[in-house]
Design a protein around this nucleic acid. Structure first.
Ligand SMILES: [Zn+2]
Ligand SMILES: [Zn+2]
Ligand SMILES: [Zn+2]
Ligand SMILES: [Zn+2]
Lengths: 159, 159
DNA sequence: ATAAACCTTGGAGTTAAATCTAAGGTCAAG
DNA sequence: CTTGACCTTAGATTTAACTCCAAGGTTTAT
């Protein structure tokens, strides 16, 4: 039997979090001490680990509640239901990755067009790109010459 | 020139969101009509699209503000500063992609181990994986036989 | 000229997931 | 028998990013 602080420490969450989970129906201690302390047994701890694992994999508490309800009543659910939930989440993740890659390309294009030197950013192509309404990014050209090899390295591929 | 509702519709956000962005210094309309209506030009619209794209991939508004704020006093920044900022964000994005891919793998492993069939979830390997404290995921094995080709397809690679 | 659809402002409410506060009860150690 | 670590409760606060509301002014179409 663990008191709330013990279980919290063991699972690296705050006691408050466990009270929060209890209030929201995710995890209640199986008993209380005479003085009213929450007492969690190994099964409770296991359930908490279930919750934390699911959370770590990106499920919201609402979704986890749903998962737990399936677990309570497994025989009324089919594999199709469970798998459907996981696949839905997976699709969401895939989409997020695609978006990030798109943004990664934008940032890389910005970065590549800038010399990264000590010159004033007055003519920085990153800023110009943010200001302009076109898609194209021009390689930057400071009025003075800076012969930094980095500049040529960055810009040579862009004509 | 767009009024707030037009720009909002065009970019699929609410007018309230644009007012919110203005209040928080992300995007102000470049002018106002005689009667006080906000008027956005194409440049404003472009800036909004940048904000939305950054947001779509998980940047917070605070981060976006930082990125956009360089533009305000360009001459006090060097290319190095601007580029450093972009590169920092880029690293952030790369890391986020890596996290999501990790997460993607976990979900795929879960999904692959489950037959997704109409059988009771009693022995669903997704639930078992979430219940157990091990990393390994066992291919599920329903007591009865279901000859679904999907089951064998999913499980054959896992012995 | 009047209704519908738009716009303005300031301020309040929402959501998720905690996290914190206050005021007090319990327990082991010295 | 007091100190300090722990526990209890109800309720307030936090954060991000909106979202909604009220009370009124403006535009446009009929
Ligand atoms: Zn430069
Ligand atoms: Zn530059
Ligand atoms: Zn199955
Ligand atoms: Zn299954």
């Amino acid at each position: 039997m663990y008191r709330i602080g013990e279980l919290a420490k063991q699972c690296e969450v705050k006691a408050d979090t466990l009270r929060f989970y209890e209030k929201h129906g995710l995890l209640a201690p199986s008993s209380r001490s005479d003085s009213g302390y929450r007492l969690y047994n190994e099964h409770d701890a296991e359930r908490l680990r279930f919750i934390l694992r699911a959370k770590a994999v990106g499920f919201t508490l609402a979704e986890i509640t749903e998962l737990l309800s399936i677990e309570l009543d497994k025989s009324n659910w089919a594999c199709a239901d469970v798998k459907g939930m996981v696949d839905g989440k997976l699709e969401h993740v895939n989409q997020k990755i695609a978006e990030l890659k798109h943004f990664q390309v934008s940032l890389e294009r910005l970065s590549d067009a800038c010399c990264g030197g000590p010159e004033s950013a007055e003519h920085c192509s990153i800023l110009e790109a943010l200001e302009s309404n076109t898609d194209s990014i021009k390689c930057e050209n400071h009025g003075h010459h800076h012969d930094s090899s980095q500049y040529t390295k960055n810009c040579q591929s862009k004509g």
